[in-house]
């Protein structure tokens, strides 16, 4: 109901405003003044409003930062994520400084240099020295930002995956699935033409490596152990987004993509920190169809023992496909 009432009230307010303006215009006509001419009084009012409303905007920004800080993602639960967080803090600090410098200057100038009848603007078409300064200074700062950013990117993306625990993450409308490599630690071959109701990842069972693979509906990771997620998609582009780990990668049909990282916090630790209902979750972050908003899979980070017990309880593909046939 509020949805309807609020706009209605606003409409009434506007109608009132329009009427008031009409009256002022008619009065102006009677008194023979041009109501659309910007007067010194207007300049005072508008300049003042820039300070007041501009100031209110800045206060609104600070308020949001204080009030909503607790809603933001907790610190990264992965090794590379800590680097990303550090870069984020550096960059965010930088842009906040720039924002809180430039915006007040803009609004203050609007107020300070509001027009007066007897005043004349200062004819100042250019100053090469000044312009050089404000080209060079941002260039130097940006060089720092770029170097820091690229170093972080490089160390996040180029990691040695030789001893990483390999897991395939598979996307389709509107579901995530995952495949563990099993005892042999090698994922069996797959082909989209083999996909059917029972073999929903199209795993090639002729490949001996496939037999001990395990298709699972949630992903379990061992804390502090590197993992390599390999992504495939069955139908449209999806994007595997694990915000708590600072991990994101598109899943593209016909293309294999990957992301390697090392989780650093178990789910249990996070529950203590973030509340009992906390769970790591994989979201879809590329528009993929009607139920895009509800495409999720649970991730669990646990100790080696807990993981071993869990993986042992999962059936291999060989067992699964046999029993189904």
């Amino acid at each position: 109901m509020a949805n309807v009432l609020i706009p209605l009230i606003i409409i009434l307010a506007i109608v009132a405003l329009v009427q008031i303006t009409r009256v002022s215009e008619l009065l102006g006509e009677l008194k023979k003044i041009d109501v659309n001419n910007v007067t010194e009084e207007d300049n005072n009012t508008q300049g003042f409003l820039f300070v007041v409303i501009g100031g209110a905007f800045l206060i609104f920004v600070v308020w949001q930062m204080l009030e909503w800080n607790h809603l933001l993602l907790p610190p990264a639960s992965s090794m590379h994520g800590e680097q990303i967080d550090a870069l984020m803090q550096f960059t965010m600090g930088l842009i906040l400084v720039a924002f809180f410098l430039l915006t007040p200057i803009l609004f203050y100038f609007a107020y300070k240099y509001r027009g007066r009848k007897d005043n004349r603007a200062y004819y100042y078409p250019h100053n090469n020295k000044l312009e050089l300064i404000w080209t060079v200074v941002p260039t130097i700062i940006l060089t720092g930002v770029i170097i820091y950013g690229l170093k972080t990117w490089d160390s996040v993306m180029n990691v040695d995956t030789s001893d990483a625990h390999e897991i395939e993450v598979y996307s389709k409308q509107f579901q995530w699935l995952a495949r563990e490599a099993g005892e042999d630690k090698v994922l069996g071959a797959s082909n989209f033409k083999l996909i059917d109701a029972t073999n929903n990842l199209g795993v090639d069972m002729e490949d001996p490596n496939s037999l001990d693979d395990k298709v699972v509906r949630e992903v379990h990771l061992v804390v502090d152990k590197p993992v390599l997620l390999k992504f495939r998609s069955q139908d449209v582009i999806h994007s595997a987004f694990l915000p708590h780990f600072r991990v994101q990668m598109n899943c593209v049909p016909g293309l294999s993509t990957q992301f390697a990282f090392t989780p650093t916090q178990t789910t249990k630790e996070m529950k203590i920190q973030e509340g009992e209902d906390f769970d790591y979750v994989l979201l879809c972050n590329k528009i993929c169809g009607a139920a895009h908003y509800n495409m999720q899979m649970k991730f669990v980070v646990e100790t080696q023992e807990e993981y071993d017990a869990w993986i042992a309880s999962q059936k291999t593909l060989d067992e699964k496909l046999l029993t189904q046939k």
């Binding site: 300049n43 300049g47 027009g115 005043n119 603007a121």
Partner: peptide, 18 residues
Amino acid sequence: AVKVFNFLATLWKANIRF
């Protein structure tokens, strides 16, 4: 950034008509 600074410099010591 150059554009922003130049806008600000234009407003500096102006006689703004709103």
